[in-house]
Every structure is written in C-alpha cells, then in structure tokens.
Design a protein around this nucleic acid. Structure first.
Lengths: 256, 256
DNA sequence: GGGCGTGATGTTGTACACAACAAAAGCATA
DNA sequence: TATGCTTTTGTTGTGTACAACATCACGCCC
C-alpha cells in the first residue's frame, strides 16, 4: 500500500501552485501525512521511505525529515536507523490511558474559556449533522472516520484555551486510528459499523442540540460519556472477537 | 550571555565519554537546552546560533536542528529564516490559559492511575524537603527554580498514566520560566523571593505529609491550590510593580 | 542633514554526498 | 538440508556546501 488514491479533503493548493513559505509547506506536508496515518492509508507497521515522500512532495529529504521528526515526537511514527520509518502499531489496551485522559479533557473544553458559538458555527454543526445522516443511509468506514475527525475539530473550536486545544488534538490523533484498525479485523465488521454509525449520529444530534442552546458544559458532559462508551464498546468487541476466534481455533486451528 | 557556566545537574557523561547511540545523544542535548531555557541561562528573546551549539556539543548542525525543531514545536523556541533561533518571550497574562490547564491536570495526577509511593520514593520526597529547608535558610532564586523542577518530576512520577505525565511535563516547561523572569524584574525582588520560598516550603511539607500517608488525591488537591495561588501571587506582584513604576514615571520619567 | 538604495554580512533552510547501520541474499561447508 | 559466515542491498543519520532571506552599514542623492 504505497500509492494513495486521494489526498483526502486537502485545502486545494494542488497542481503546481504550492504557495507559501517553507513553514507553510512543512505544515501542509505534516497535515497530509498525519491524516494518511489516521485514515490507515498508511497501515500500522508499514514502512515509509523518506526519499519516496521527498519525490512525491517535490522536495529533498531534509524538510521531509523535519515532518517525520515531529510525527515521531507525537508518537505516530518511529524511525529506526538502517531500517526505515515505521508507522507505530497500536492496541486497544495500551491506549486506555490516553482515553482516560481524553475523557477528562473533553469535559474541560466546556469549562475552560468556552466560546459561545455564532451563527456560522452553528450552521457548521448542522451541516456536519446532515453529512452524518447521509452516512447512516449509506455506511462507509472511511467516511465515518472523516466525519468523526471534522466533528472533533469543530468541537475543539468551542474553547478559546489554545493549549487545551493543542493537547486535545494531539491525543485525538494518537487514538483515532484504533477504531478503523480494530473494526476492520472484526468478524462482524459490517454490523459493528452500522450500529456505531447509528449511535454516533444520535450522540451528534444530542450535542448539536446542546450547542444550539449554547450550554457548552452540557456538551462536555455528553462528549465525555460519548468518548468513554465508544472506547468500552470497541474494547468489548475486540475482546469478544478475540475469544471467539480462539475458541474456534480448537475446531479448525488455522488462525494467523 | 553565551557562555554557560554550569550545565546544571546533568547526569555526568561529561568529558569525552558521550556514550550511546544517536537517539540518546539527541535526547541529552534536548534536555540540556531545555533546562538552560527554563533556568534563563538563555534569556527570552536571546538568539541562539546553530553552529555555536554544534561546536559546543561537537556535532554538526544536523542533530542540533533536530533538537531545535522539537523545542520549537513545544513552544520554547522560534526559528526565523535569515535571522536566528530565538528563545520565545513570555508574559504572565498570555500564560494564564496554560496555568488553568495545569491546575486541572495537577488534580488528575491523583486520580488517573495513581501509584502508591514505595519507601525509596518517600525518601526522595524527604530529601527534597531537606534541600528546601536549606534553601529557606539561604534563599537563592536559581536553587529555588531547580528544587521546584525536581519536585515537579517527583510529583509527576506519582501517576502511571504516561500520556498525562508527558503532557504535564510539556506544560510545566512552558510555564516555569515565567517566575524567574518576572521576579527578577521586580522592585521588591529579595522580599518576594523570601516569602515565595517560605510558602513553597510550607506547601511542600504539606504535600510530603500527604504522600507519606499515601493519599494521592489529597496531594492533587493541595497541588491544585498551590499552582493556582502561585500564579495569582505572581501576577499580582507583576501588575502592582507595573502600576507603581508607571506612577513613579510621572515624577521622573526615565524608564527603559 | 535626512532619506533611500545597494552591497556586505550573518543566519537559517535546502539539497546532496557519504557514513553508519540493519537485514536479506548468496554461498560454502558440515 | 541446515548452518554459519560473507557480501550485497537498502535505509536512516550526519556533515557540508550552497541558496534564500533578513538586517545593518555605507554611501549617494536630494
């Protein structure tokens, strides 16, 4: 999996335009790679080659390495001398601590410097809700992940506390891959996807309602429950699936 | 201020030993520079030259740039093309949001995966308390800052939640310089230092007592109050000093 | 004397060649 | 065939020359 079909919903700047100074360029490459990792365009364990990336973005290895270093500091990559730059693997149990922290921070977004959403922002919430409704009609894992990501950013913009936003984002990107990865390995993949989208849609509707009223503290509470339960559902599914596979292994032992 | 007299309490590895692989080396340089920034060996606004640092650590600019990039991502530096790498300036008001967040995280340390301190750890707390008592007898701003730093790390080790530790550390290093910087400009520098050390010692004794009992939730509460009030005292001092200087300016206007 | 352009100087950003390192392939031997 | 050594290949880490950029000093013109 080296060729990546779509660059996601990148903010234009395609073709040869590539506007701006070196900092913007690096920021752009960073955002692209981060999104690819979190959407599993780059699978956990996959090896990225600096020179390949350099060719794709039409720069030398140097700025690419600048980006990879940051992604490594943030825990999404790991460079090994003589081997390659590897997308970090993740497992649901190791991420429990991150989820515990995310749960607490979600509540803080409603408490620390909350900003009352204006009309435009409320419209953005409604638009996202509409996208989610379309998703319920035609479930798709990748689209689900993207809506989830956009929703996160929108919610994150409800606090004016910059450090809180930055850290929430950091932790979000550390955890969000786990859903796509775990779900895709599940036996009951389609069923889990459907129920998860349905639940997500309902919770999203609740949150949008709270946003419309302007009670950001309630938003925080709902979201806290949302994140916490989402994690628990996923872990239960994963463990149930694992034991089921293990039991089945007694009859016909050809796992792996 | 380019020559730095002491490297702080670095873990030896001096002379020509410089053990280990490239990752350890980078980590070491990172820790040294971060400490220098936070102890104001590098003052806010000061310009660092990559080549100078490269010479000092006996490497080329490349690994130095790797370290500077991380410090820039963490908000302690800012590299400007054609100008230099500048230590970020800070002001007490801009850091209020970070303090608000630190206050919340301090409480979380007692709640999320708390680890009961063993005998060694309790001894470490007592040793630090002893150092603090010596400090009360002979006040010194830099020694105060160093004890404060060691105390932070010790407290941070009371949770097993790795992400929480990492983020707390990040925010701590973003804020800790402000005390030394602000206090050093105060008219009543010595008096403020003395009272601050006295207060710090008392709070430290309270926390150590709570640690000895093993009630980490109480530790969190005390520390929450500690951080919050420390910030308020500092801000009040700074503002009072500013208005006093401003008023004095009416009589003899020769500030700056 | 003041304003402005122009070159000199200094610094970070980039590109590239090479060193260091790891892993796989080839190969001889028991 | 299995095993251990050597060679080969591939990748990241480092060093260094140069480009891009900002700033300052100098001198020219008004």
């Amino acid at each position: 999996m080296t060729a990546v079909p779509t660059l996601g919903s990148l903010p234009a700047a395609d073709g040869a335009m590539q506007t701006g100074g070196s900092r913007e360029r690096i920021e752009r490459i960073y955002a692209v790679l981060r999104k690819r990792i979190c959407l599993l365009d780059y699978a956990p364990g996959e090896r990225l080659r600096e020179e390949t990336l350099a060719d794709e973005f039409d720069v030398s290895r140097t700025p690419i390495r600048r980006v990879l270093a940051r992604l490594e500091d943030e825990g999404l990559l790991r460079s090994v001398h003589g081997v390659g730059t590897i997308v970090t693997d993740i497992d649901i149990d190791a991420l429990e601590q991150v989820y515990q922290l995310r749960v607490e921070l979600a509540e803080l977004i409603g408490k620390l410097s909350p900003v009352q959403p204006d009309a435009d922002k409320i419209d953005a919430f409604r638009a996202l809700l509409a996208r989610c409704e379309a998703l319920v009609a035609r479930p798709d894992a990748r689209a689900f992940a993207e809506i989830n990501m956009d929703f996160f950013h929108l919610l994150n913009s409800l606090t004016a506390n910059e450090p809180l936003r930055a850290i929430s984002e950091l932790l979000y990107y550390q955890t969000t891959r786990i859903w796509l990865k775990t779900a895709s390995r599940l036996e009951s993949y389609q069923a889990v996807l459907n129920t998860e989208i349905t639940i997500f849609h309902r919770e999203m509707a609740d949150i949008v309602a709270a946003v419309e009223i302007g009670d950001l503290e309630v938003v925080g509470h709902i979201r806290r429950a949302h994140i916490s339960m989402s994690f628990l559902r996923l872990r239960n599914s994963a463990h149930a699936d694992a034991t089921r596979a293990h039991d089945a292994g007694h009859d016909a032992s050809h796992d792996d």
